[in-house]
Computed example of a mutant assay.
Amino acid sequence: MNASTTMTIRLTPALKEKLGRLAQDTRRTRSFLAAEALETYVNRELQIIEGIQRGLADMAAGRVTPHDEVMARAEQIIAQARQRKAAGQ
């Protein structure tokens, strides 16, 4: 069994009731479902923060593309796609 620790959180009565229903319907404990949901949330938020940090590091190192260059390339791609569509490809 994995090591674990206890943490107390406050929930609205409505959320606690929903969690209870989900636990019953899935034959899992409320604790299991809450820990699983929290892990998913924390992992997602950490990925977002790490992505922002990478972006800031890229900016600091000068690894950026000017906005006008990006927009010009995007417009070029859109124009090419429209031409292919008009040609029936």
Score class of each variant (00 low, 15 high):
M1E: 12
M1N: 11
N2F: 03
N2T: 12
A3C: 04
T5Y: 13
T5D: 08
M7E: 03
M7H: 09
T8A: 06
T8Q: 05
T8V: 09
I9C: 07
I9A: 08
I9H: 02
I9Q: 05
R10T: 14
L11G: 12
P13R: 04
P13L: 06
A14F: 08
A14S: 06
A14T: 13
L15T: 11
L15G: 01
L15I: 13
K16Q: 13
E17Q: 15
K18A: 10
L19Q: 11
L19F: 06
L19W: 07
L19D: 05
G20E: 06
G20M: 04
R21T: 13
R21D: 14
L22P: 00
L22A: 15
L22R: 11
A23W: 02
Q24P: 03
Q24A: 15
D25E: 15
D25A: 15
D25H: 07
T26P: 01
T26F: 07
T26W: 04
T26C: 09
R27G: 05
R27V: 05
R28V: 02
R28H: 12
R28Q: 14
R28N: 14
T29V: 00
T29Y: 07
R30C: 14
R30V: 01
S31F: 01
S31D: 15
S31E: 15
F32S: 06
L33H: 07
A34K: 04
A34M: 15
A35H: 04
E36C: 01
E36K: 12
L38Y: 02
E39S: 13
T40M: 03
T40W: 02
T40L: 05
Y41F: 12
Y41D: 04
Y41R: 04
Y41H: 12
Y41T: 07
V42T: 11
N43G: 03
N43A: 10
N43Y: 00
R44G: 02
R44W: 10
E45R: 13
E45S: 05
Q47C: 01
I48D: 14
I48W: 09
I49N: 04
I49F: 03
I49T: 09
E50N: 09
E50Y: 01
G51P: 11
I52K: 07
I52L: 08
Q53K: 08
G55W: 02
G55E: 10
L56C: 03
M59F: 04
A60R: 10
A61Y: 01
A61S: 12
G62V: 05
G62W: 02
G62A: 09
G62R: 05
R63D: 02
T65M: 12
P66S: 06
H67Q: 08
E69T: 04
E69H: 08
V70H: 04
M71P: 00
M71E: 14
R73N: 08
R73S: 03
A74P: 03
Q76Y: 01
Q76P: 00
Q76C: 03
Q76A: 13
A79K: 10
A81P: 03
A81G: 09
R82T: 09
R82Q: 14
R82V: 08
R82N: 09
R84N: 14
A86Q: 14
G88C: 08
Q89Y: 04
